[in-house]
């Protein structure tokens, strides 16, 4: 259960807000019942579609980030497919990508420590130079 997924789906635009919330709550229930955990739910709002989907020109985008296993994802996708207001959905596995990003981040952090020591004296020197210049300037003007 160490995988996590992003499930994005589009709900038809002519749905009421309350119904949309109910629909999302239903999917969240499926995830929890199936043994997964919900990381976040995000309503991305209404957006114009890039092409016509079931004769709709725009749709409500919803993004779920979940920890789940394959069975649960299959079940969730089945439910998305049969639920009438959902016009499109996509599931993307994110954990391997995240692992890669963490690795890069770690590498970058170690590099930064080395580079941070070198340029540290430089700004101090500039700051020291500037007041000196200011001091020199004031007597000249006075």
């Amino acid at each position: 259960m160490d995988r996590f997924y992003e499930v994005m789906f589009i709900v038809r635009p002519d749905i009421e807000d309350a119904d949309l919330d109910k629909l999302i709550a239903g999917f969240e229930q499926t995830i929890v019942n199936g043994g997964g955990t919900l990381r976040s739910t995000e309503k991305l709002g209404r957006r114009k579609l890039a092409y016509l989907v079931r004769k709709f020109n725009d749709g409500n985008y919803v993004l779920l980030t979940i920890d789940a296993d394959g069975k649960l994802v299959a079940e969730l996708e089945r439910r998305l497919r049969v639920s009438e207001p959902v016009i499109k959905f996509i599931t993307v596995r994110m954990d391997e990508e995240q692992k890669r990003l963490d690795k890069i981040k770690a590498i970058r952090a170690t590099r930064k420590k080395l580079s941070a020591q070198a340029p540290a004296p430089a700004p101090a020197a500039v700051e020291a130079a500037e007041p000196a210049a200011a001091v020199e300037a004031t007597p000249a003007s006075a």
Binding site: M8, I10, R47, L49, A50, Y51, K88, I90, V92
Partner: peptide, 14 residues
């Protein structure tokens, strides 16, 4: 390609 599938980007301009 993923963005195209979820209608964020077009497959072809209309």
């Amino acid at each position: 390609k993923q963005a195209r599938n979820i209608a964020l980007l077009p497959f072809a301009a209309r």
